[in-house]
Structures are given as C-alpha cells and as structure tokens.
C-alpha cells in the first residue's frame, strides 16, 4: 500500500458527494418562490449587511495557537526517539516545556487569555 492511495480517498469523497448531489438534483422537486431564497433570520428580513467587519475576539488566542502548534510539531519527532535517546532528551524537553510554559504563564498573567 502506497501513499498515492491518498488520492483514491480524496476521489471517493468527491465522487460520493457529487453523485448524491446530482441524484438529489434530479429527483428533488423545485419550486420558485422569492421569499424562500431569503436568508433565514427568524422570519424577518435582515437589517443591514451580513458580511460586516466582525469582531471575533480571539485574535490573541490565534497568535498563541500558532506558537504552540509549531512547538507541538517540533515535539512529535522528539516523542518518537525519546526512548532511545534517554535522559538527555528528557532534560531537553523539560527545558523546552519550561520555556513554553513560561510563555503561557506570561500570556495568562497579561490577561491575554481573556476573551475580549
């Protein structure tokens, strides 16, 4: 089994959705009613635009996530060889996590972990 098998899973996913959609498109009824195409907002026409600038409030989290996710990627290879390398690997990762933990603690104390 080779890695090009990934393609087949990509394809069967796409085929599955496509075929079912086409099938549904053939057998499903269709009726035209302008009211029906309105976006649903509890039965009341929407006021103002939908795609406005939107304050999502987890900007800081996203940055932290980037930092930590990259670190996690770095830890994976370490995790695989941890057993073989032994104590040296452990000490290294303690230092690594200590620095990482300090970063988290810093963000915590700076109230960056509060949804705003």
């Amino acid at each position: 089994m080779n890695n090009e098998w990934l393609i087949i899973f990509f394809l069967i996913g796409a085929i599955f959705v496509g075929v079912v959609l086409i099938l549904s498109g053939i057998i499903a009824p269709r009726s035209i009613n302008p009211q029906k195409f309105e976006p649903y907002e509890c039965g009341i026409p929407t006021e103002g635009g939908t795609w406005l600038q939107f304050n999502v409030g987890y900007y800081m989290f996203a940055i932290l996530f980037l930092v930590f996710d990259v670190e996690t990627v770095l830890v994976f290879p370490w995790a695989v060889v941890m057993k073989e390398v032994g104590m040296a690997a452990f000490i290294e990762i303690v230092i690594f996590f200590f620095i990482l933990g300090l970063g988290l603690l810093y963000a915590w104390k700076k109230h960056a972990l509060i949804w705003e």
Partner: peptide
C-alpha cells in the same frame, strides 16, 4: 464605500419571532 459605512454599523440580528429560545412569539 459600502464596507467603510458598514464598519460603523452595528451588527443587527433578529432573535424571534420564530426562534427556539424565545419561548413563544417574541422578537
């Protein structure tokens, strides 16, 4: 221009009259 004016708008959402958590018809 639209986008600029939109920035100053509040994001207005109707909750109700047909909404699961208004417990009836209230908007």
């Amino acid at each position: 221009k639209d986008i600029i004016t939109d920035e100053q708008q509040e994001y207005i959402i109707n909750i109700g009259p047909q909404h699961p958590s208004t417990h009836g018809v209230m908007r």
